[in-house]
Amino acid sequence: MADAEIQREAILAAIDNVAARIAEEKSYLTDLDSAIGDADHGANMNRGFQAVVEALDGDDAEEMGPDDLVKMVGKTIISNVGGAAGPLYGGSTMLASAELEGGITAETSVAFAETYLQKVQDRGKAEIGAKTMVDALVPAVHTYKKSIEQDDLPPLTALSKAVDACERGVRYTVPLRARKGRASYLDWRSVGHQDPGATSTLFILEELLETAEE
């Protein structure tokens, strides 16, 4: 198998794993969103990733390089999720996909992660500490970047450390007072609840790691 072919297979496998995981966690995510939002995050994410699985099942996907594949993932999320999660997950994925033009390497994956985070913040305007997915993303991306660029760790190890960092980010959202997203309307009442978007971010990263380990 050519290198491009292997990367394509890996992306498809990752998507399948992520979609399966989201489907499994759908009602958990919705429960989290019930407490401090509007009870749709599970349904939103699941609708999106089911659509992605279908989209990647088409013939077009066979011809695509990793960057275009990831771009298609982003676009499909944009046009199927809606809500806040749609533009944040989908738009950022779409825009960051350009970083993968030369294929997925340790360097391009860092660039992808950084751009993705940047786009989430450009669009959502959330700083760290606002009790959003940003709180999970920032530690994950920073850890990944440092592990690879400073500590010279292999990508798999770096990803595993990023997942740990992400999880800490998720837990960190619990005691925070929300300043962005629907949870912000609850103000102090949001304290003590875990952010759904941070949680789904963690699930996705966990599945990426799982896929990479296989």
Binding site: A35, I36, D38, A39, D40, R182, Y185, L186, D187
Partner: peptide, 26 residues
Amino acid sequence: EKGEPTFDLGEDEIELGIGIHGEPGV
């Protein structure tokens, strides 16, 4: 989709400052 109340309110309670998405009030 959820098929259950988004938030629970006791028989003697009301929520003030709610929005329009079943998010709890202030």
